[in-house]
Nucleic acid binder design. Structure first.
Lengths: 145, 145
DNA sequence: CCTACGTTCTCTAGCGACTAGAGGAGCAAG
DNA sequence: CTTGCTCCTCTAGTCGCTAGAGAACGTAGG
């Protein structure tokens, strides 16, 4: 008995299994991230396992915040597995740096927002700490912003 | 002796003191966030202290990550100081929630990226942990992504 | 066979928040 | 009076999608 390998599926099904929306799949094809799949007699796209795997790769990469161009490079690497993986490595490392920087700045932001909100007496706008702090950056505990 | 209150300054100077780029200032005017300033004889924009204060408010709000529409509301509130400040409060609170959610998801992301990078043996793509994890979400320590 | 409905097709335009560049005019210093 | 900077308006581009129009296909029921 043959295992239930997914045969060729139409775009809606590809969207369902990959979690990528239909127009987004078409968009990925348009920008050359996903190769053009074969078409049915009625001109519908039919995705096989290889396409679905690639789509999953793209989706996962996007979830990790990699940019399209970075993903393009990563996919190229995946297609040529003999090459050294240092480019992949450095792309991931760069992304990690970004994420760390972003976390740090968001934590500072969070502190600033909390200070604003906690200081607010919930009266009129005239005494509102939120508006007050926004108008005068000097009232910030100078987060890096 | 008069204090050195900034007189009317051209857009370049406004950009310098506010830290908002020239085209961005014009953009804020275009979308009605910053009122149209008076013009010089030669049709140049001239910003007075009120404009500069508003610009600083906008810039600070953007740095804290508020959306343009939220800033529009905040500016309206600032213009009508008699109103209750609860709308400002809730805008800030919503932003805080977003920031907290974002921090949490970025921390999970960071862990995932670190795992990928640490696991990479720096050999060829064929054994690259980075590419490997990207192709198979199952290899993630299932962060919420 | 006809109809109804869901899916897919292509195409264009829009989102947010800018950013870049063209082509021209004003303005201050040498 | 020329040089070089700033400023003007305008259009178009960025990123990663998202929305919608209008038409064709495909399938299930009657």
């Amino acid at each position: 008995m043959p295992i239930d390998v997914p045969g060729d599926v139409p775009i809606g099904e590809a969207a369902r299994v990959s979690g990528v929306k239909v127009p987004t799949i078409r968009y990925y094809e348009e920008i050359g991230l996903l190769p053009e799949p074969p078409r049915s007699d009625g001109n519908r796209r039919l995705y096989g396992p290889a396409h679905l795997a690639r789509l999953a790769f793209i989706r996962h990469s996007r979830q990790l915040g990699f940019e399209i161009e970075a993903i393009r490079t990563l996919l190229d690497l995946q297609d040529n597995p003999g090459q050294p993986c240092s480019p992949a490595d450095s792309i991931a490392r760069r992304r990690l740096d970004e994420v760390e920087a972003r976390i740090a700045s968001l934590i500072a932001l969070k502190a600033e927002l909390e200070r604003m909100i906690d200081g607010c007496a919930h009266g009129s706008v005239a005494e509102c700490r939120v508006i007050d702090v926004l108008s005068d950056h000097g009232k910030c505990a100078h987060a890096d912003h």
